[in-house]
């Protein structure tokens, strides 16, 4: 429904960075990349790590894709995009392991799965394959950070309710009864639904206000 009202096109007046971060937010507006969104958001730390890893992959690979976009024959563009994205993912895999083993253990199988996140391929196909390098990297940065923002929103709900902590610090004191459900997979679906509901409600209200203003 959200997508019907707002077609996924880049308008000239939107800055590529802000576009991804907010206006066309990959999770809350385009509803892309659902697998990591649901799987890796059981704590704020995991959500931020996953968001940043994805951002890095997107910025680096879109820079490369955009730089060689005019050399890529149409017939093999998907294969080329995937090869470049996969390379970025492998590099991130090594880097995360080098930075922190616990974070690597928490993200586990989901780092390699960045390559199959439809968000990364969608932006390569829709934007980086057609636009100049700087704009493409900005788009990757905006989309990646927008993704990270959305994941953090979900992670916040799930960690605060599911464990009573935020980034590991207790929020409600030690007597809080955690809602285990939110750490389990159904909790991902429930929190995503709550956020989508919230944004839909906000949008509807804004539209109503605008309509009321127009009639005055």
């Amino acid at each position: 429904m959200l997508r019907d009202k707002q077609p996924v096109t880049i308008t000239a007046d939107t800055h590529p960075f802000l576009n991804g971060l907010w206006k066309q937010n990959p999770v809350f507006v385009m509803v892309l990349g659902m697998c990591p969104t649901l799987a890796i958001t059981n704590s704020v730390k995991n959500a931020i790590s996953m968001g940043l890893a994805t951002t890095f992959v997107m910025v680096a690979s879109y820079g490369m894709i955009s730089a060689i976009r005019k050399l890529i024959p149409k017939q093999v563009r998907i294969a080329t995009f995937i090869a470049i994205i996969a390379c970025g993912v492998t590099v991130v895999d090594f880097l995360v392991k080098a930075i922190s083993i616990p974070v690597y253990q928490a993200l586990g199988a989901y780092i390699p799965l960045i390559v199959s996140n439809c968000l990364t391929l969608e932006r390569a196909e829709a934007y980086a394959g057609k636009q100049p390098v700087v704009k493409s990297m900005l788009d990757g940065l905006g989309m990646g950070l927008g993704f990270a923002l959305a994941l953090t929103c979900l992670g916040m709900v799930r960690e605060v309710l599911g464990a009573g902590t935020f980034l590991g610090f207790p929020v409600f004191g030690s007597r809080f009864e955690p809602w285990v459900l939110f750490l389990l997979p159904p909790g991902g679906f429930i929190s995503l639904a709550m956020w989508l509901l919230f944004f839909a409600w906000r949008k509807e209200r804004a539209a109503k206000l605008a309509a009321a203003e127009a009639t005055q």
Partner: peptide
Amino acid sequence: LLGTVSLMCGLLIVVTN
């Protein structure tokens, strides 16, 4: 083209490793 891209990617991965 695919060969070149793969080669570059491979080199990058080796360097990072």
